[in-house]
Simulated assay, not measured.
Amino acid sequence: MRISIVLITTALLGGACAKNGTGPTASTAVQPTPAPVRSVAVATASQLQAALTYAQPGDVITLADGTYTGQFTVPAGKNGTAASPVMLQGSRSAILQTNIRTSGNAALFLLGNSYWAFRGFTVTNSKKGIMVDYSSHNLFDNLSIHTIGEEGIHFRRFSTYNVLQNSSIQSTGLVEPGYGEGCYIGSAVSNWPTYTNGDPDKCDYNTVQNTVFGDNIKAENIDIKEGTTGGTISGNTLNGKGLNGANYADSWLDVKGNGYTISGNTGTNGGPVLVDGFQTHVAVAGWGENNTFASNTCAVQAAGYGFNIQTKSGSALGNKVYASNRVAGAAAGTTNITVTP
């Protein structure tokens, strides 16, 4: 593996020294010093796994164009910092795959990591695209994820404050349509005993923004599970063309968590299976509440609503559908609850 080292000179930021030269004033703010940047060039699968295994804060790992076959894993505890994240980057022609869609796991697997940035490359031809467990404060930017047996990217096992943005996801669920979500946040209550010792899978405050969900996503474009809180879904392009309907997948987006902000998204291509544009569900008592939908544009072209909010005992559980949403082609209307001005 070819490694070149580039040092970045840093200085403490803050107030000037006292006039007598004895030290800094009380107002001095000491900023964290970024780690030196190491430029790590990789061109083979073994070099890529080595770069992930031995990564240090500040590393910039650059993939040469080509196909990297394997289940590439970031070991638990291998972290960057807020000041010096670890970056894995490449062009669309740098392709990660397992080359098996029917078994195995993800082409890229985080196992308990923070402050990584993944930029530019392609993930394809695998059972799962990217799996994120026990990991927080990571960025997934400008990625292409496609031709996947199950879900495209999955934030699971208490993964929080992650951001997926500016990416493209299509052709997921090609082997198991019922597990073919483009982006999956959290775990279903039926899986809590397996993944979280029976506790809610608190994958909180994750963001999905400015991402294009393309054709042939078999399940929901984005599935937000019970037990998760406070995420943001904004500026995405959602697509129902190719939706399969397995496991009740009949909307672009299904919200079972609490306190999500869903705004500025555009939904198109209803497809024969689409029923509603956006849905909420109460899979577990106390969940599916206090979500807001604003400034979304929905060309539903289906029999249901633009926003179908599951109610309980006549109450919408704090969910709000604002008048700023624009809905066309929804035979049942904009929403089944009172619109908030």
Rank of each mutant, 00 (worst) to 15 (best):
K218D: 05
G318K: 11
L13E: 15
T124D: 06
W287A: 00
G180D: 00
W287S: 08
K312M: 11
T268Q: 11
Y115G: 03
V123H: 10
S135H: 00
L110W: 13
G314Q: 03
V30Q: 09
S295C: 10
N325W: 05
S91F: 13
T22R: 12
G21D: 01
T292F: 06
G329V: 08
V300A: 00
I100M: 07
A51M: 01
Y179N: 03
Y115Q: 04
Q209E: 14
A323W: 05
T98C: 08
V282R: 13
Q71S: 14
E226F: 10
T194F: 12
Q47S: 01
G245W: 13
G186V: 05
H146T: 10
G227S: 08
S234T: 15
A331Y: 04
T232P: 06
A50M: 10
D223H: 14
W287F: 15
L13M: 11
A76Y: 11
K19D: 10
F155S: 06
G180Q: 05
V30H: 10
Q170A: 12
T73A: 11
S27R: 11
W287D: 02
K127N: 13
F121P: 06
L139G: 00
G277D: 00
N336Q: 12
V74G: 04
Y305D: 03
K241T: 08
A83D: 01
Y115W: 14
G231A: 06
C17V: 15
F158R: 12
T9R: 11
T335M: 01
T9W: 10
A332Q: 13
F109D: 14
G259D: 11
V255I: 15
T62M: 03
N210A: 09
S187L: 11
T102S: 14
K127G: 04
M1F: 13
S114D: 06
V163N: 05
T10C: 06
T228H: 11
C183I: 15
D204I: 09
D141R: 07
P36E: 01
T44Y: 14
A83S: 14
T228I: 10
G240S: 06
A94S: 13
I3R: 09
A16Y: 14
T335D: 06
A55Y: 04
D141M: 00
F155Q: 05
G21A: 02
G58Q: 02
Y179R: 05
I217D: 03
P272A: 08
R156S: 13
F72Q: 08
I217R: 02
P341H: 04
K312A: 11
V6M: 06
G180W: 05
T53G: 00
